[in-house]
Write a protein that binds this DNA or RNA. Structure first.
Lengths: 224, 224
DNA sequence: CAGGTGTGTGACGCGTTTGTGACTGGATTT
DNA sequence: AAATCCAGTCACAAACGCGTCACACACCTG
């Protein structure tokens, strides 16, 4: 069973160490402006205060997301009061959710435990960014520079598969079996239509064209 | 000052009645397979033994959650030994936390008193807001911009579960087991009806539609 | 026991999605 | 330059998935 690593910006950490019975399943650590003080393995959960002594919470939130070591941490923003604008800012800065403060021991544990029980799925739910493109596996949503791309199920699967193998030519056959459509056998030319539809969807969200055609071979998801 | 109503599955109840000096602040009652023997007002706290004479503790836990009258009780699961799998099962069945048994009089009172002195804290964690939507666990009520949403018990639980996992696709199976309805097995299409009813309820309270359908997969509670 | 409420289910209809064939125009080859 | 190849696009029919309704049953309540 994985250990959940919990990071907090306030001084709640020490208080929690006493409170939690099963020390083997959790670690607690202070979260400074530079991020976590030590590197850890396993799922991470960060609680970030809206206001911090040295640094705005939003900025820290962005840094956590930007840093590869903490990019897939679950970030919970602690808002002082219930303001719609702040909530939106928090989510936009990369927070996964938020609580209306002040943060208490039970609030922390409630959330962590609730998620813990559904932990297995979380590993699969990642979110990754490629240039202006963001793919949120959990919400099954893609965005181009914050504006959502309306995708049909198959288009989303296609985009996901392409984005998982960037800078690499994928043959039509690769794509068909990559989307799990071996049965019944599908005409290879159909892939062209998929690509066309996906391109159009990205375009109508104001996006560019990251899908390059490699004549007589297949398609590539281009980075940069 | 509210009275805390404590339910126990074992025979600890009688022993506690003698032990506690300030009878005005607590009631104790036996917890049978049918749930509490009498209905009470105010916060409830149930301690459920892992093994029970007539019924598995997990099952009782689920029933408490399913019953509108006890849905917001704080349920503590009493585990016989420290087993990771069991703890996960307990939480998934709807337990709020757990202790590693055997349950003693002081263990019970420690927990209850700790909570009692932090009543304000409790309210904070049991009520959360997502956009225009407010969910009040204690009052079992939801609001959209101050106007109450009339929800049946099942709809409330559905909304709660969805709101606890926002921005994340929940399959019909997730929702069924998330509401603790694995037994007896439920047709997945039934979830569609739940969603439909919940949407209608929110709508007739003047609300929007935060529930997005993800074709061929499930539903998401959408933030922003 | 009668009336009311909450909930699961089967069935129906509609909108959406999707694979395919045909057509087109540009690129590549001879 | 002609012939060939190949990808982009369109329209369409079939399949699929979802929303919704009515109904039956279980459960409470008086």
């Amino acid at each position: 069973m994985d250990v959940v690593n919990i990071f907090l910006t306030g001084e709640l950490g020490e208080s929690l160490e006493d409170f939690v019975h099963d020390q083997r399943r959790f670690t607690f650590d202070r979260l400074g402006p530079e991020g976590p003080r030590r590197l850890v393995e396993g799922p991470m959960w960060a609680f970030v205060d809206w206001v911090m002594p040295e640094l705005a919470g939003l900025e820290l939130c962005r840094r956590l997301r930007a840093d590869a070591r903490t990019a897939d941490a679950h970030v919970t923003m602690v808002l002082e009061e219930d303001d719609a604008e702040d909530r939106r800012r928090a989510l936009r800065a990369g927070a996964d959710d938020y609580v209306i403060g002040p943060l208490t021991r039970t609030a922390v544990l409630d959330r962590v435990l609730a998620l813990q029980s559904r932990g297995a799925e979380r590993n699969a739910t990642r979110r990754f960014e490629l240039g202006a493109l963001t793919i949120d596996m959990a919400a099954l949503q893609a965005r181009w520079d914050e504006t959502p791309i309306v995708l049909r199920p198959n288009e989303f699967r296609l985009l996901r598969f392409l984005a998982e193998n960037p800078n690499r030519v994928l043959t039509r056959e690769d794509l068909i079996s990559g989307l799990g459509k071996r049965e019944p056998p599908i005409d290879e030319r159909t892939v062209d239509v998929w690509i066309g539809r996906l391109r159009r969807a990205i375009k109508s969200a104001g996006g560019g064209n990251p899908l390059r055609t490699v004549r007589s071979l297949g398609y590539v998801f281009d980075l940069g």
